Amino acid sequence: MTTLVRHVLRDGVATLTLDRPQALNALGQKLMEDFLAALQACTADERTRAIVLTGAGRAFSAGGDIGWFGALLAGGPAHAQAEIGRFMEDAGNQITQAIAECPVPVVAAVNGPCVGGAIGIALAADVVLAARSAYFLVPQVSQLGIVPDLGATWALSRLLGRSRALGVALLGERMDAAQAEQWGLIWRCVADADLAEQAQALALRLGSTSAAAVRDTRCLIDAAPGNTLQQQLADERTAQRRHVAGDFFNQACARFLARTGHA
Rank of each mutant, 00 (worst) to 15 (best):
L4Q: 02
R6E: 15
L9S: 03
R10C: 06
R10K: 08
L18D: 06
P21R: 02
A23Q: 13
L24H: 07
N25P: 11
A26H: 06
A26T: 13
K30H: 12
L31Y: 07
M32T: 09
M32Q: 13
L36N: 04
T48G: 03
R49L: 12
A56W: 11
G63K: 06
W68G: 02
W68M: 14
F69T: 03
P77A: 14
A82C: 07
F87D: 05
M88Y: 10
G92N: 13
I95F: 10
E101C: 10
C102Q: 01
P105D: 12
C114M: 06
G116L: 07
A118Q: 08
A118F: 07
I121K: 00
A125I: 08
D126Q: 13
L129T: 00
A131L: 04
R132W: 03
A134Y: 04
F136V: 04
P139T: 04
Q140Y: 04
Q140N: 10
L144N: 00
G145L: 11
V147G: 03
D149W: 04
L150S: 02
G151R: 05
W154H: 07
W154D: 10
A155D: 06
R158F: 09
L159D: 11
R162N: 08
L171H: 12
E173K: 13
A178V: 15
A178K: 08
Q179F: 11
Q182K: 07
W183S: 05
W183T: 12
L185Q: 08
I186M: 07
W187P: 00
C189L: 06
A193S: 08
A193E: 14
A196M: 12
Q200A: 14
A201K: 06
T209F: 07
A211R: 13
A211G: 14
A213M: 15
R215Y: 06
C219G: 11
A224P: 00
G226V: 03
A234Y: 05
D235L: 05
Q240E: 14
H243W: 15
H243T: 01
V244A: 05
V244T: 06
Q251H: 13
R259I: 08
H262R: 15
A263H: 12
